[in-house]
């Protein structure tokens, strides 16, 4: 198992593997997101309190989950890069940052669009919203720090430390609605006990969540392959690849 992982993490085999996995991931993502949109916008019933406005949840909640998940991937990849100095881990952490920042931005925007009609405010400084905004700044800071250091390998080390330090924000975001009084409601699905959402509404939510996850992996592989080529441009396997393509 460890051997297989080790072989897969070498740049040329990762490049080939990612290229093969890409169409499957992208196809699965599009299929699931299309099914989720249909289920969420057409099939699922209106909410007893919020009417049709709640449907923005099918974008907002999966985006929010992704914003946390991608940061955890970045922190874990950063830790691996720091300890074992594996190039693939550096590339994955770095390629994840813009995707995570986009999902965080999407979470904040859809949250504001949902908040105005339901709460009566686009934005409030409660613990959940504020900690999610800090997450966006962490992503942006990560990308800024990375582009400020010309050498890729030292940039990877510096950003890995930032990602690890910032990872304390992740449990804060998740538990903010329990630890403090917030305007944002508590967890519906990611809590102990049964989800407090009707199955007809849970289905599109889960479809979208898995669809978003596959979309992230597809996007990640595209970016990671591209970065790998850039970093390895002087290596033998890249020049063979170019010769084959020519």
């Amino acid at each position: 198992m460890f051997n297989l992982l080790h072989r897969l993490s070498s740049p040329p085999s990762f490049f080939a593997f990612a290229g093969r996995a890409l169409p499957w991931l992208l196809g699965g993502a599009l299929l699931l997101i299309a099914a989720g949109c249909y289920q969420g916008l057409v099939v699922a019933p209106a909410d007893y309190q919020q009417g049709d406005s709640y449907r923005i949840m099918f974008v907002h909640v999966p985006s929010a989950w992704m914003s946390l998940f991608i940061y955890m991937v970045m922190a874990a990849a950063g830790a691996i890069a720091l300890v074992w100095r594996i190039k693939l881990a550096e590339v994955i952490a770095s390629a994840s940052a813009p995707i995570g920042a986009s999902f965080t931005f999407l979470t904040l925007v859809t949250g504001a669009l949902w908040g105005k009609p339901m709460w009566g405010a686009w934005w409030v400084w409660d613990a959940r919203l504020t900690s999610e905004l800090i997450l966006l700044f962490l992503y942006l800071g990560y990308m800024g720090l990375e582009s400020a250091i010309p050498d890729k390998r030292s940039a990877a080390r510096a950003t890995a430390i930032l990602a690890l330090v910032g990872s304390v924000n992740i449990p804060i975001i998740h538990f903010s609605v329990e630890w403090w009084n917030t305007l944002h409601q508590g967890a519906t699905v990611t809590k102990l006990g049964a989800p407090s959402i009707h199955p007809s509404m849970l289905l599109p939510l889960l479809l979208m969540a898995v669809g978003f996850k596959l979309f992230y992996f597809a996007n990640l592989l595209v970016r990671a392959r591209c970065q790998m080529l850039e970093r390895e441009q002087r290596s033998h396997w890249v020049s063979t690849l170019i010769k084959e393509a020519a």
Binding site: Y48, G120, A187, S196
Partner: peptide, 18 residues
Amino acid sequence: EEVLAKHDENYMPPEVAE
């Protein structure tokens, strides 16, 4: 000066709520 509504984490169709 400002009143905001807080909603809970439960989502269901009106018939189920009824």
